[in-house]
Design a protein around this nucleic acid. Structure first.
Lengths: 379, 379
DNA sequence: CCGTCGGATCGAATCGATTCGAGGAGGTGC
DNA sequence: GCACCTCCTCGAATCGATTCGATCCGACGG
């Protein structure tokens, strides 16, 4: 009697058909609804009946309800989309992103939620403004981990779809919880530390101002175009204390970018195309980098130029990473609670799912003085 | 007339109800099936009708078919579970895993598949053998990125569920494609390079032998317990050429573990609890590390002990990472195509979904000689 | 001995979309 | 002018599970 019109066995992946709850119920001699009860545990059921259902399941090799069916009925996928604000390859090379992600995954995992990775910038196809997953993947909430631009295509797409959003490190978004750190005051604190040491010629190595992959000196015009909140905060934090004598934008927060920026800031073209240290009387005496990775690159660049740290130049960063390979140097930096930030993002997701009203969480940071900063050299 | 028994508005997340295809069809004055055609593009439909449906959709704020419904019908979730064989926090600190993951995500992304992160080892709860996502998350295929133990609980759970599996760097699994590199011969090649340079006392810094987080010397008994294929291959590759004078197991492939292992291998307890270099007449003259990160740690340890590289001790790794911060040293290593490995894994996933028969892909590696290996010191 | 009560089980609707064959309208060929 | 063919649209079944109210059973109290 069961002639199946309008259907041609979907889901015929590799192996044969998986048993369904209906088949289990049939074998156990109960109704589907009772069988469902046996698995979900919600509702009254005789231990005996339950056992009969479970036995039938085992016999058929049924390993539990198909998540797809459950999801459709409940309207929840159990998936949280995590949009990393860059190409994945780059994001993962930055320990900052990794540690935040780790805290996030742990917290979500404890609540039965899985993390779906979504590149914030489509890998190679410039035709698309956003990754296709943003448009069509099933997710209950999306987390934008690294900032939100003023005119963010990804955010817009998610809002259009009605996917609730949680923002990490960005501007306030209507209806979305925000988890941020006090990076402006933290940056100001480390710059004040430099100024207190007598530095007046401070150079700055900046995080990317937007997603355009530019690098080079930052002038007033460019400064006005900053479209990433954490970068904006750190730029502002520096200027709360001192006007840098030079400022250099990097295309990503990685060691090599900090290195080349610093070579440009502290060096000048030398003999045979090489870069040599610039004139000590005009050269910056301190480099404030917006991140520890950039600062590490700055340190390497200084070494390359034959400059002693901190005797000839002081270097400070931001993040508080553990970078043992910089030994014997220990970076002066501002420590931020990265794993905790991830955990807070996770908690914000849970609250968002529970329908609570979004709140802003702002985490404290702390200046940690290492060996890479010292008194300004006396000219 | 539509009194809704047996249902209490599921999916009432934060915001109100999203419009459904049925509502759009109603407003457009067509049937649901026609409306579906307008979106999917599969099947004949008049441009005019299509436009009417799309207009209706726009008016209602309908942004396309609900993925959950589509997934249930098609039996496909569009999600690939990626099981990283460790805690996430650790896996992501290893550039090897990150680069593979990057290649994988790109390839899958091009095919409309998303990556769901699954920790291979449950974060903190020792009660569970596998992460709950393994048991119940919706996924079309699972990729086990870093090895499969002989008695792998995660693999068993996935097979029980009937989720097709793709294995990266592990033993052959019935019915599962395998993507691997020639790490045994590659390791043998780099060790032969050392032996050709005159080294006879070679020490080995090994990758983890299993997931027990042990570290310490490897004796014959422990050697027999190795339960990770890449590790087994590299141990074997070393022994294909020379029997190491000492071998040390690490708990993870990170710089600090390579450092402490090497301190143990090349040092001895010194004056006030410090570690000093061991006697040059018995001390190993070369360290072969199973990974570049471990080798980087070895390099740092050697520097700490006051040993010159490669004059006092040669150091070689495996992976071919770009580690600019080791400058001026350039590691002697074996280059493996990491992003390509990820891409091959992605292709294997696609083929698996297409129902093709699983095949094994083995990628070539290449010895790259740097500045960290040199002739054995003459005693 | 009968009515009532409580607990276990069942039926049926529902989540939202896809898909196939049937059916209808319009056009063409003879 | 009629039959046939094409092309578009529609109806209905289906994916697999959840859930609510109804039903049915036995037990207990009066």
């Amino acid at each position: 009697m069961s002639d199946t019109p309008g259907n041609r066995e979907p889901g015929t992946a590799a192996s044969g058909h998986r048993p369904t709850l209906a088949k289990v119920a049939e074998l156990a001699g109960v109704s589907v609804s009772t069988a469902s009860l046996a698995f979900s545990g919600a509702g009254p059921i005789t231990p005996e009946t339950r056992a009969r259902v479970l036995d039938a399941a085992k016999e058929l090799g049924y390993t539990g309800p198909n998540p797809l069916g459950r999801q459709l009925r409940s309207g929840r996928s159990g998936v949280v989309g995590v949009v990393v604000g860059d190409q994945l390859r780059r994001a993962f090379r930055d320990p900052v992103a990794v540690q935040v992600l780790d805290g996030l995954v742990s917290t979500l995992g404890e609540n039965g939620l899985g993390v779906l990775l979504i590149p914030g910038i489509p890998s190679d196809d410039p035709a698309r403004a956003v990754d296709p997953l943003v448009e069509s993947a099933a997710m209950d909430v999306a987390v934008l981990v690294w900032g939100v631009g003023t005119d963010d295509a990804t955010l817009a797409a998610l809002q259009r779809r009605g996917v609730p959003v949680v923002v990490g490190e960005g501007r306030e978004v209507e209806g979305a919880p925000l988890v941020a750190i006090r990076d402006r005051s933290g940056t100001a604190a480390v710059v004040r530390h430099l100024v207190d040491l007598g530095h007046t010629r401070v150079a700055e190595v900046s995080l990317p101002l937007d997603t355009t992959d530019r690098s080079g000196p930052i002038d007033a015009e460019r400064l006005a175009q900053v479209d990433r909140t954490p970068t904006a905060n750190r730029l502002a934090g520096v200027r709360d204390v001192v006007e840098p004598v030079a400022s250099w934008e990097t295309e990503a927060s990685l060691v090599e970018h900090g290195r080349s920026a610093t070579l440009a800031l502290l060096g000048r073209p030398g003999a045979d195309g090489a870069t040599v240290a610039a004139d000590p009387s005009t050269r910056p005496t301190a480099v404030i980098a917006h991140s520890d990775l950039l600062a590490a690159g700055a340190l390497l660049a200084a070494r390359e130029l034959g400059l002693r740290v901190p005797d000839d130049v002081s270097v400070a960063g931001f993040d508080g990473l553990d970078l043992p390979w910089l030994a014997p140097d220990v970076l002066t930096t501002v420590h931020q609670p990265l794993a905790r930030k991830g955990a807070e993002l996770g908690r914000a997701v849970i609250r968002q799912l529970a329908g609570e009203t979004p709140t802003t969480v702002e985490l404290d940071v702390e200046l940690v003085v290492g060996t890479t900063t010292g008194p300004a050299p006396t000219t």
